[in-house]
Every structure is written in C-alpha cells, then in structure tokens.
Design a protein around this nucleic acid. Structure first.
Lengths: 340, 340
DNA sequence: TGTTAGCACTCCAAAAGAGTGAGTGCTAAA
DNA sequence: TTTAGCACTCACTCTTTTGGAGTGCTAACA
C-alpha cells in the first residue's frame, strides 16, 4: 500500500517527467514550494517506489523515470476528474458549431483539430457497418452499358460504385429492379445486406423480372463493394516532434505500421464503452509498444459505431488528452443521434 | 565545352554517387574495368569539372559529389533514352490489367505501386475540373428536409454533397428543377458551371417555377461545392529510408509541407506536356529545396488534366524514375481516353 | 522512529586528444 | 599528355579527461 506521501511524490514526479522528458531527481522535487521534506527523505521514498516497480532509473546514478506500471497506476488512480481548459473547450465548440455538411469533413476536421490540440497523432474510425442501415439505392446511367450505383446510409454516408449494366435486361426492367431493391433493402443493416439478398431477393426477382438470372448476377456485382471502414488521420507527422522519436528508425517503424489498415483495425477494433488507455507493452501491436494509445467510443442508438483515438509516446499528457477525447466522443455521439 | 572523357567521368561519378550515396574519389573511378587512365588523370579532370561547377567537395580532402548543376546536366544530356526493366514493366502491366472499377482506386493503387517500385514518395493529382464536364445531377431525398446531391462527371468521378431542401418548394417542383439542371448543365465543363448558372439558369427558373427565388438560392447552395482536386499519396514514409533524411528535423519539415494542400498545388500545378524534372533549389517551395521532383502529365482529349509525380532526394535514380513515370502517364492518358 | 545533513561513489555527457585512412593537389619524370 | 610519388588535409573513431547531477548510506538530530 502506498502512503499519502508516496502517492504525492509519484504524482509530482510523473507530472514533471511528462512535462520535461528528463529523469527527475530528488532535489528537483524537494525544490517545489508545496514540498516540505528534504531531498534525502524523497530519496528514500523514491527508492521504495522503485522497489515496488513504479519507477525506473536510466542508469545507477540518474534520476527516476516512470515505469509502465507507474503510468498505469497514474492513469488509474492519480488522475483527478479532468476538466478541460477554456481554450480547449473553445476549440471543440468551434469545431462542432461549424455544422459541416458532409460527415466525412467532420471526421477529417476532428482528426486534424485533435492532433493539433495535443501534438499527438489522432486516428478516427468512421461509423462501422454494424448499426448503420441502408437508406437508399440509386442507379445512374452514364450512357452505354456504364452506370454508377449509389448507396446512401442512415448515417448520411454516400458510397458510389461504377457498374456495367447487363446486356440482357431492358431499361424499364432495370427501373423495376432498383425499385425492388429500395423496397426490400431500405432499413437493412449494411452487415446483413448480403444475407438478405441471398435469402429474399432472388425469389422476388423470379416473380417480377423476365431475365431474373441476369438480374441476380448483376445484383451480386453491385453489392460486391468492399465494406471498408473509413480511417481518418490527423497529424501523422506529430510523432516527429516528440523527443522519444528523435531516431528516424523508430519513427519509420511506427509510421509504416500506421499505414497498414490491418494494424489500425487491430489497434482500434472492439472498443468497449468509455475511454480505454493502453500503455506501451500492453499494446497488441509490436510496432506501437513504445507508445500509448487512448481510445474513446462513440455510438448511435446506444450501440458503439466508431472510435476516436490518439497515439503518442508512453509519456503522454494523459490528463488533458483523456478530457479531450471524452468531450469529443460525446459530441460525436450527440451529433449522430440528433442528425440522423 | 566538355571533352568526351569528362562527359564519361561525370556520368560514371553521378551513377556511382546515386547508387552508393558516398562522395566518389578518383581511385574508385580508376578501378572500374572500362577506365583506362590513372587516378591522377581523373583527379585532374575532376578538378576541372569542379571548376565548371558540376561537382562539389564536402570538405577539402573528400571525394566529389554532384552539384545541382551537375544533376541538371546529367538529366539533360547524359541520360540515355530509358528502357524499363522487365520487372518494372511487369508490375505496371499488372496494375493496369486489374481493371479497377473505381477511378479513385486506380489512383490509389498507382500511387502505391509507384512509390513501392522506386522507394520515393509519389503524388498523383486527380483529374482537374478544366476539361471534365458534368454528366448527370441527381437529388436523393433522405426524408425530412435533408437530401443528397450527386454529381457524376465525364471522367466517371462521383461527387456527393448533403443539402437542405428549401421549405417553400413542392416536391414536384423540385423534380422539375432537377430536370432543368440536367438539361441545361449536362456537358458543361465543371469550371464553367457557376458562370453558366448565373447567366442562363436563373432566367429559366423564372419561366418554369413558381418560387423561382427560393430555387435560385437553393441552386447556389448545391453548387457551392469545393472544387477540391483530389490528391493521392503513395509511400509518404519512404523519405525515412533515404540516408539524406536521417535527421528527423529535415523529415519533419518536408512531411509537414506535403500535408499542406497549397504546397502540393504549388508543386504540381500547371504542368506542360511530357516530363519535367525539378532539381533542388529550382523548386519554388522552400521545404523541398533539397529534393528533386519529377512530374509527368496525363491528358484527356488532348488536354492536360492531371499530374503524376515522384519526390525524392536530389540524388535520385533519374534514369529509372523517368522511364517509369513516362510509361505510367501514358497508360493513364490511354485509360481515360478509352474508358470515357 | 522518522527526518535530515553530509559525504563518498557512480555514471553520463561533453570536451579534448591521438591515430587512421581516404582523398586531394602539386611536382617532376616518362 | 599522362602518370607516379609525396606531402598535406580533414573527417572519423577511439580513448581519456573532466564536470556535474544524482544516488545510497551513515550518523546525528528532533
């Protein structure tokens, strides 16, 4: 069990280290105004804290540096309920007051602002297909056999896909076909589209269309869209400003990893409610083991649909960052639920 | 005027430097099989080439390094007509055989492959509005006052924009309105849309619609889309593999610059036919003054509509890169002209 | 018993010094 | 005109030195 004083010293030390990125010595702590015991006393406490695994030394006679266990403790127990600073609040409000029309722009802007506010890289995962439903399908002929299929979802997202019209079907029939699609598929969650088509639509086609086999093939083609979840980055180069990434090699490994969609998915997938902090080695992905990742979930009709996150060095401004993410994710949830 | 031998030595030296990124000394050159004069002779020639400004020394007793003037000369006079290597050809063909449906995917893939083939960062500018014409407009209601306006262009690009329907216009009228839009605006180059609307449409509205003022306002809103040209990147982190960017500071400046749309536009704008090589200080943009930029233009109906480019250190594999860009840009031109 | 002053000790980091080798320019001979 | 030879330069690397920040331990003190 940690004594009051140990808690205090641990907190002060981590705060100091997060700010200055230099090992913190006993004297530095003792010189603070609110510290009323000598550096020798602090040295004793530091030694104890180190024995318990909360601190580390970079070499025998250096100051102390928080260990990952230390950060974990700090995040779990030492972080006072965070209140955003006025300029932060101001910035976020400005963002959501802009009433950006396109959903994509909102994500883009949020990612950008988030990274600019924090100087860390932000990653936002757009709405997942899970809860999103199809709202409308449209087929726009381009002349010849070419056309564009357009899908509008319940979250206001628009997806388009060029298709080749089947030669064996008359234009009127195609119209019928699209009407059927709209009738049958509106309101169906994107994830269930394929299933629905397979189970119900082929039968309906047989009833209403002459060339139902061609139609079925055509439909399969249309819906062969990659259900890619959109990833938005902000401040990919912010890493380069962090002293722990002064080594190009390290930056390279990290940035290369972030280019991989699979890595991003692995990092941000399956988020539970609220805010998750993953520190260093706790991370699944090798390349980000010297980083911390903070995720916040946003939801639509009570179900998680996407993730907002920040990635930075393990020495992160946890206090501020958590407050920021919390606020922004709430705003997102709010936005989706009121708008759609 | 340069002698045969000087030309030869200059070429050999630059080739060597591009490959090994180390100052090249007289002995290195003299040891080549096809060199039949001594290192002393070469030293004399090197001194002359340096006097002429084609070479530089990093310090008094170092080997020689090509100057920017040297590269310029190399690119302009020493580059044999480039023939692609078989694996390069193979890769490009594979890319264009894939018959990717979405135009966007083609750009994405090209950028990626280009950067992977060369280990430089590639930037592709999507088709500009200049030559592209509007092919179709569609308004998809989302329920309530919300709707999505969809624009399809002659190059197959689809743009969408959420809009709020004006309250004072009946649904049938909106249909009429869209019909008018399609009738009047199909085939109009994107760049001229605003002008066309201002000059012709408002009059037509007055004739056919009751609430023509509301309609006019609405139309202005719809077409208030940012005519953003799409920028596709490939291998943004490739810089980090180049020895000249071992310094994080340099990488940061460069990568930050590339995040700026204005910078990209400045770099890639107004490209003339064929291939342009811009070396170091020749660049307009401060941040890329230690890079070389190679641009190739692709066209539609004989007019330049976009740019494919690579950015890397001034020491670039010019020979190969130029060949690659040339081929790919031709393929692009080909693609657009046959497909649309 | 907890706290503190004092001191020897450790180890990093930056500076200073020494040796090495790749490369040059110049000169004189072929 | 070309080449061999030689003195010279300068970046690099490796070692040594020095300074300072920080520790752990001990003994004295409240």
């Amino acid at each position: 069990m940690l004594s009051e004083r140990q808690l205090f010293i641990l907190q002060v030390l981590i705060d100091d280290y997060i700010q200055h990125v230099e090992p913190v010595g006993s004297r530095t702590i003792s010189k603070r105004e609110d510290v009323h015991f000598s550096s020798a006393t602090i040295r004793n406490e530091l030694a104890d804290l180190e024995d318990m695994g909360f601190l580390e030394k970079t070499h025998t006679s250096s100051g102390r540096v928080p260990s990952e266990k230390g950060y974990r403790f700090y995040v779990d127990h030492l972080l006072s309920p965070t209140i955003l600073s006025t300029p932060d609040i101001f910035n976020i409000q400005a963002l959501f007051n802009e009433k950006l029309a396109e959903t994509e722009r909102i994500f883009e802007q949020s990612a950008k602002i988030l990274s600019e506010l924090t100087n860390y890289t932000s990653i936002i995962l757009g709405p997942e297909a899970l809860e999103t439903t199809l709202k409308h399908i449209q087929l726009i002929p381009l002349g010849g056999q070419q056309a564009v299929a357009i899908f509008v979802t319940s979250t206001g997202h628009v997806e388009n896909r060029p298709v080749t019209l089947p030669s064996g079907i008359a234009p009127e029939e195609i119209e019928t076909l699209v009407n059927i699609l709209n009738e049958k598929l509106t309101g169906v969650p994107l994830a269930e589209l394929h299933q629905k088509i397979r189970e119900e639509l082929h039968l309906v086609f047989r009833k209403h269309l002459n060339n139902h086999q061609q139609a079925s093939l055509f439909i399969d083609d249309i819906f062969k869209w990659s259900n890619k979840d959109k990833i938005f980055f902000g401040g990919k180069t912010k890493m380069l400003y962090q002293p722990e990434f002064r080594d190009v090699e390290k930056v390279r490994i990290l940035l290369d990893a972030l280019e991989e969609k699979t890595v991003i998915e692995q990092l941000l997938s399956a988020n539970n409610e609220g805010i998750t902090v993953t520190i260093g080695q706790e991370n699944q992905v090798e390349a980000v083991r010297n980083c911390s990742l903070i995720k916040a979930s946003y939801s639509f009709h009570g179900k998680h649909i996407g993730t907002i996150s920040l990635i930075g060095p393990t020495r992160m401004e946890y206090k501020r960052v958590i407050g920021l993410l919390d606020t922004i994710s709430r705003e997102f949830t709010n936005l989706f639920n009121t708008r759609y």
